[in-house]
Amino acid sequence: MSLKAFHIIFVVFSTLTALGFGFWAIRHYRVSGEQAALIAGIGSFMGGAVLIVYGRWFLRKLKGVSYL
């Protein structure tokens, strides 16, 4: 497996972590009322969206590179 393939796997897990953390942070905000949790939650969802866009850009940029 090449670095290209491993990076795609990494981006998938990072996106899931960002979205999961976003849900956790929003839930934490609703329980504790901590403003930082709300900011972190929104930021994390935005980060997840950025990672999806980046992942698509990365795939396009390295179209000619092997997955092996």
Partner: peptide, 24 residues
């Protein structure tokens, strides 16, 4: 550099799993 990158991605992936189980 690709080999270094593979190692680096693995180490970062370990943290991706460590973070939620320890902190969240």
């Amino acid at each position: 550099i690709e080999c270094t990158g593979l190692y680096w991605h693995f180490v970062d992936l370990v943290w991706i799993f460590l973070f939620p189980i320890l902190y969240l």
